[in-house]
Write a protein that binds this DNA or RNA. Structure first.
Lengths: 351, 351
DNA sequence: CGTTAGCACTCATTATAGTCGAGTGCTAAC
DNA sequence: GTTAGCACTCGACTATAATGAGTGCTAACG
């Protein structure tokens, strides 16, 4: 039923599990009687009380006030997530739901991830977050210059995620329209497959091999590329934030305000999502709980996240954000499965 | 000091003005003594009480409970906005602040409007909303087909707002790469200046004039254009929503939830913004108050909005959303001025 | 010695009552 | 028409008590 659980003996583990589980579902502090009854333990409440006191002393549980029931601490949740909770398989219905959601035509990575944040919000009832692959790390599939006005030009770039990115460039001298197809041809011949933020470097490296006409083209191209604005990092999609109001922990206005403030600042949000996704290396489940966001200025929330991979490389992350009291078994399953879906779809897109 | 005020006699108007003004700044129900003192009226509280009772009977004021001070009703706010409030000139500092905010390089309409929502949120302390011009109504500046893979092609479109829109199109048969420049040339020769959602129609209309080679090109182009996905209507930018938590009317969780729910549904948001902006024809100030959003499922909020114009045509709207108790004189001034800025900038972009 | 029954104790929650004061409506006088 | 005076209303705040869920501790039990 549960993994090897260090530090705690079996009874302690059982009772911690019971408390966390009960609290997750009811949002009420858990008393000794409740534990015995709900989990049909063959123990008396008094015994459970003793164990609970031990768990409190070790920092896994906490009383909201003397003589109230117990509530998990961050540490308690962490232990639960790492060692106690049973991995929950997705039901057939859930799996199907996800498949259906991705069945429609999705043309590029941005659409896929927008859809993902929507899906996550919908089925988890938490805030769904999805970070698109960084534009910097993307690879050029196609590059094209397109004159717009006499002194402005659009640099158009299709990357391996199917996204088209356009940047306006102010050109110094007028462009020779007839000349452009040649230049475009040149660009595509030499820059296909290069990482977006390495375009200039790649061209520079090749420069010595070029002669005459080719060299002239390359220099011209370099000039344009140097004018390109810096690439943005991956866009973040967020959906379902309003659902957080349903959670009793956010009925307190100050709390709600803190969280919504966080959600509005996309930089901090990505930071959090990434931190959580990286947890998957260190601990199980890619879960970040409460105060584990050190110095990130938020407390009382958890993030369940998972990186998604394209060609074996992690290129972005998705996840959900909510109160610490979250149904982790279900959420980790959903997030992991969805992340693998996203990876698969993006890989297909890139081909 | 104030315009011709129908329906109400001078004293009533003065007192209504005083009550609304006071309530807007303090968020506290206004009593007769307060009115007399804060506005140095040459009347006794008792007289004011009588007039307030009259105003209540006529539906301009309201008591939150028997023997409490008065609070404006929707109707009261409406009268205040239409007839009583003094138009407030922007201070030099405010105006400069706005100019500075737009001084940086903004390459296309989307950036301009994103910046606008940010600016509005910042200086009004309400939620700032900005709707970009509809992509449908935009005019083609430049159109280009770009092969991506063997059977997929990007249709790239630069519009008169500097935006580049790209759409992936699945092509039936393989594209002849050498042939593409000719086709692109053809498209630009004939479709420049046409509205985006009228491309096919425009080409169809010209069809009979073409012969041979041209006709072949046109038919080819039509085929591609017919595959283009439908244009989206204008994107909405929203910023500063979190600031609404500061307002006492949104300290009630249920209220906050309602509003945030609304803000998350972009369709309803645009709808509201447009309704409010259109008010500028019917009433003064482009303000929509509380229950005036008939059947839109929101109460207790107001929107101050203003359309912006490009080439004399209204093509979008900007505004702010907050509680009904808003500093209308300042907000209408800011929103109007900002809207004219946006219009000016977009016009310049389009040239 | 681990487990449990019993019991005194704590503390959030709820209900009840009382006080205070801002503000009203009404009446009568100016 | 205006105003002073006054009884009245009602939310906000405070105090007090009752309730009950749940605890920690002690002593007895197997």
């Amino acid at each position: 039923m549960m993994r090897q659980a260090p530090e705690l003996n079996e009874r302690e583990a059982t009772i911690l599990h019971a408390v966390v589980h009960s609290y997750i579902t009811t949002a009420e502090p858990v008393g000794s009687r409740t534990v015995v009854k709900r989990f049909a333990l063959d123990l008396s409440p008094a015994t459970v009380r003793n164990t609970m006191a031990d768990l409190e002393e070790q920092g896994y549980l906490q009383q909201v006030h003397t003589s109230s029931g117990r509530v998990p601490t961050d540490r308690g949740y962490r232990y639960y997530v790492d060692y106690l909770m049973r991995v929950q398989e997705l039901t057939g219905a859930e799996r199907e739901r996800i498949e259906v959601e991705y069945a429609q035509r999705l043309n590029d990575a941005d659409e896929v991830l927008k859809q993902t944040s929507h899906l996550l919000a919908l089925i988890t009832h938490q805030a769904g977050i999805a970070e698109a692959p960084s534009e910097r790390a993307a690879v050029v599939k196609r590059l094209e210059l397109m004159p717009v006005t006499r002194d402005r030009m659009a640099v158009l770039l299709v990357d391996n995620y199917g996204r088209v990115r356009s940047m306006m460039v102010q050109t110094e001298r007028e462009l020779d329209a007839d000349h452009l197809p040649t230049l475009n041809q040149f660009l595509n011949d030499h820059l296909n497959g290069v990482a977006v933020d390495g375009l200039s470097a790649a061209l520079n490296a090749k420069l010595r091999n070029f002669l005459d006409e080719q060299r002239r083209l390359a220099e011209e191209a370099l000039q344009v590329l140097s004018l390109m604005p810096a690439q943005r990092s991956g866009q973040v999609f967020l959906e379902g934030a309003t659902q957080l109001f349903e959670q009793p922990e956010f009925r307190d206005i100050e709390r709600a305000r803190e969280v919504f403030g966080l959600l509005e600042e996309r930089d901090r949000l990505v930071d959090l999502l990434r931190s959580a996704a990286m947890e998957s290396e260190r601990t199980r489940g890619s879960v970040l709980i409460g105060a584990e966001f050190q110095g990130k200025g938020v407390e009382g929330i958890s993030v369940v996240a998972s990186p998604y991979h394209v060609d074996g490389q992690p290129v972005g992350a998705i996840g959900v954000l909510g109160p610490r009291r979250m149904p982790y078994p279900r959420l980790t399953a959903i997030v992991d499965y969805t992340a693998s879906m996203v990876g698969r779809i993006l890989t297909r897109l890139g081909g």
